[in-house]
Design a protein around this nucleic acid. Structure first.
Length: 378
RNA sequence: GGAUGGGUAUGCCUAGCGGCGAGGGCAGCGGACUGUAAAUCCGUCACAAAGAAACAGCGCAGGUUCGAGUCCUGCCCCAUCCA
């Protein structure tokens, strides 16, 4: 892997990440396809059309269904879902958080009850790396624990210490797996994850420790899980400077367009979020004049596209009124068009961010974009 | 004309079988969603700004009963079948 910084403006970075599956232009928004599918009937062919550079899938979800061993037999995730650009797999660490009622955390790893059929599943650092190696993603994420934002300081400290020990194990196991003959992607990359909830000093200590481990990239996890935006920005201000500057930085699970603009400004390269896809399925559309809810009756007779001038597959052809009709009629096409629009909006915003960084106009672009999205032209 | 089954709130469907100040679903209207257990979830949906108190409503009219959407009588409508 090669990480090359092309431009910097303040702490914002314009860079490229070269991988075995191609070069990623950053800052980048990864499109989330948890179960090797972008929900809303969006295909990988669609992703190419809307400018997706890198897709994200999930270790836990693919392990419980259809199984990483099966996917390995079918040639790995790229071949399986017919996507030859980079893929990042999340480690299952977030499911330790999101499936809180269905798991027990121990030093060796996490015991889950499958959300599909209740069967017992054990996942620790080695298991997560093994599954991700079977999936043969471009970038594997370390297996971490994502503590709730409101967790007690003492709990967060012990959780972060354990996550650090898990990271050592992830690194060792990844090295071992990459050296095996039957490993599909022997150059699988490993990103570590910073944790520490909203305690800046714990975050900083942790950032320093994992920075010494010479990983391929570094993520900030455990944000946007209930804390305020101000707290999140504050943590980024405090923590990102302690992560290696010569490696990509990834803010996990974030976020709104405004969150992304603020985080780029604080040095983040990679993002992912379910918002564009989930909100799309729910009829909420992102535009340069704020978010709109197409279910609202005021759009019943609105013959305009979701966004005037947008080149996405929905806006090039269909009106708000028609898409609203599809949504109300529960036609799959309605959700699909909305998801395509939202992902296109996010991907396009990232292109604009990169262009602005290229020309040294990010600060102006950010202000203009935020002002525009806060205006109400819908 | 006869037989049978039905008429439940602002639109539709439906639970109810003596304590109902009537439950649920759809539709409608609005909201939420941040490394996806989410095409999900929540609110609202007679009147009242809201709370206390009080109060409308189960086809219509009577009756029985401490108490009736529920039981009885008559009538009106709807559906199906038979003449």
């Amino acid at each position: 892997m090669e990480y090359k910084i092309l431009k910097q403006e303040g702490r914002a970075k314009r860079a490229t990440v070269t991988t075995v599956h191609g070069t990623i232009q950053t800052p980048v928004f990864m499109n989330v396809g948890t179960v090797a599918a972008i929900k809303g009937a969006v295909s990988t062919a669609d992703l190419e059309e809307i400018g997706t550079q890198i897709e994200l899938s999930n270790t836990y979800h693919l392990h419980v269904r259809t199984g990483d061993e099966t996917i390995k037999k079918l040639g790995g995730l790229h071949k399986f879902m017919s996507w030859n650009r980079p893929i990042l797999t999340d480690s299952g660490g977030f499911q330790v958080f999101s499936l809180a009622g269905l798991r027990r955390i121990k030093e060796e790893g996490v015991y889950f009850n499958s959300h599909i059929d209740g069967r017992k599943i054990f996942m620790g650092p080695e298991e997560s790396m093994h599954i991700q190696s079977n999936l043969a993603s471009t970038i594997a994420m370390a297996f971490d624990e994502c503590p709730p934002s409101k967790a007690e300081r003492s709990y967060v400290q012990s959780s972060v210490d354990r996550t650090t020990r898990w990271l050592e194990r992830c690194k060792n196991e990844m090295k071992r797996l990459n050296s095996l003959d039957d490993t599909i992607n022997k150059e699988q990359l490993l990103f570590g994850i910073n944790q520490g909830a909203v305690y800046a000093d714990i975050r900083i200590e942790h950032a320093k420790r994992i920075s010494e481990m010479d990983l391929d990239g570094y993520a900030v996890g455990g944000l946007a899980v209930g804390e305020t935006h101000e707290e999140m920005y504050h943590i980024l201000d405090e923590t990102v400077p302690y992560l290696p500057k010569d490696k990509p930085t990834y803010l996990m699970g974030v976020g709104t367009p405004a969150n992304i603009l603020e985080a780029v400004d604080r040095g983040v390269d990679f993002f992912d979020c379910v918002y564009p896809s989930r909100n799309g399925r729910h009829g909420h559309l992102y535009t340069n004049h704020g978010k709109i809810n197409l279910f609202n009756s005021k759009y019943e007779l609105d013959g305009r596209p979701i966004e005037e001038g947008c080149q996405c597959p929905a806006c090039r052809r269909y009106s708000r009124a028609y898409i609203r009709h599809l949504l109300k009629a529960k036609e799959m096409l309605g959700m699909r068009l909305c998801v395509l629009h939202n992902l296109y909006f996010y991907n396009t915003m990232m292109t604009e961010i990169r262009d602005a960084l290229d020309t040294g106009e990010f600060a102006a672009y950010k202000k203009r974009k935020l002002d525009s999205m806060n205006s109400s032209g819908n």
